[in-house]
């Protein structure tokens, strides 16, 4: 068994599971914020939510797949584990950073919207 192929399978399986699960959670709970942003346009909030979900999946799964092509040749199981955990850790960190940036963004948009409607 080629260690690299095993590592690719594990890496893609685990990260795809994390990304799909988190994307679904954001889609589900983020809907409330979007409905808050467009209070009298539920159709607009729903379509924006779906577009954002698809964009998120495309960019993240695409990045994960793109990342696969630059791994070194693995020599041992220790090497495999070390590389696998650091790669998955990096993906989780990046997702967390993007998540907080998005929350800030939603807050800024909400603020701007209330200013606009008050004018």
């Amino acid at each position: 068994m080629n260690l690299n192929i095993l590592a690719y399978g594990l890496y893609f399986g685990i990260t795809a599971f994390i990304i799909l699960r988190i994307g679904w959670l954001f889609y589900h709970f983020g809907a409330v914020y979007l409905h808050d942003l467009y209070p009298n346009r539920p159709d607009l909030a729903n379509s924006l939510n779906s577009i954002l979900l698809i964009g998120y999946y495309l960019l993240n799964l695409g990045y994960v797949a793109l990342n696969l092509s630059s791994w070194p040749q693995l020599q041992s199981y220790a090497h495999l584990l070390a590389l696998l955990t650091s790669k998955i850790g990096f993906i989780c960190l990046a997702l967390g950073a993007i998540h907080f940036a998005n929350m800030l963004w939603v807050r800024l948009l909400k603020k701007e919207n209330t200013i606009n409607t008050n004018l």
Partner: peptide, 26 residues
């Protein structure tokens, strides 16, 4: 192994490109 690497690079790159086009459309 090389086939998997090449395929993931192509499909991943194309998927990132699609994501960027999607956000440009939005």
């Amino acid at each position: 192994q090389e086939m998997i690497e090449a395929l993931s690079q192509k499909i991943g790159g194309f998927s990132v490109y699609l994501g960027i086009v999607l956000f440009l459309n939005l």
